[in-house]
Amino acid sequence: MRARWIVLVAGAYALALALIALWPTPVDRNLAVVELPPVAWLLRHVGLDQLTGYQLIEFSANIALFVPLGILILLWRTDWGWRQATLLSLAVTVTIEVLQNLLRPERFASLSDIVANTAGGLIGALVVLAARRRVPALRR
C-alpha cells in the first residue's frame, strides 16, 4: 500500500515538474512577483531592490520546487541516503536544464537553477533522514 501511495504522489509530482520546467514560457512571465503587496513590503523592509528581490525569490522557489523530489526519493528507496538523493536531484535538474536549452529557446537554462534545485533535493532528503530517526515506519 505504501509503495502505491509513493508512486501516485511521485507521478503527480513528476507531471507538475515537467509542466513547470518545459512550459513554453517562464511560469511567472505575466506575474510581477516583486510588485505583489507582501513581497514589495518585505523587499522594502529588508532593503532589497526589485532585481535582487526577484532573484532571491526565484532561487528560493527553485529550492522549494525540488524539496519534494528529495523526500520522494528517500521514501521510495529506504536503502539510500542523502548522497544518492542529492546526486539524483542533480541529474534530474541537469536533464531539465539541457531539455530547456534544446527544446525551449525562450526559457533560460542556468547554473543558479541547478544549484538551487540540487539544494532543494538535498533538503528534502535531510527531512526524511531526520524523520526516520523519529518514526520507525519510515525506516523500512
Rank of each mutant, 00 (worst) to 15 (best):
Y13P: 00
L17M: 14
A18F: 11
A21Y: 03
A21G: 14
P26N: 02
V27N: 03
R29S: 13
A32Q: 08
V33A: 12
V33Q: 12
V34W: 15
E35K: 13
E35N: 12
P38D: 05
P38S: 06
V39H: 07
L42Y: 12
L42V: 09
L43W: 06
L43A: 13
R44K: 14
H45C: 10
V46E: 02
V46H: 11
G47L: 10
G47E: 00
L48H: 01
Q50M: 14
Q50C: 09
L51K: 11
T52G: 03
Y54D: 11
Y54R: 09
I57V: 13
S60Y: 04
S60W: 14
A61C: 05
A61M: 10
I63T: 03
A64P: 01
F66G: 02
V67I: 15
L69Y: 15
L69C: 12
G70M: 03
I71Y: 00
L72D: 10
L72A: 09
I73L: 13
L74T: 02
W76S: 11
W80K: 05
W80P: 01
W80G: 04
W80L: 08
G81T: 03
G81W: 04
G81H: 10
A85V: 12
L87K: 03
L88G: 00
S89D: 06
S89H: 06
L90E: 03
A91W: 03
T93V: 08
T93K: 03
V94I: 15
E97Y: 06
V98P: 03
Q100T: 02
N101I: 04
L102H: 00
R107E: 08
R107Y: 04
F108Y: 11
F108G: 02
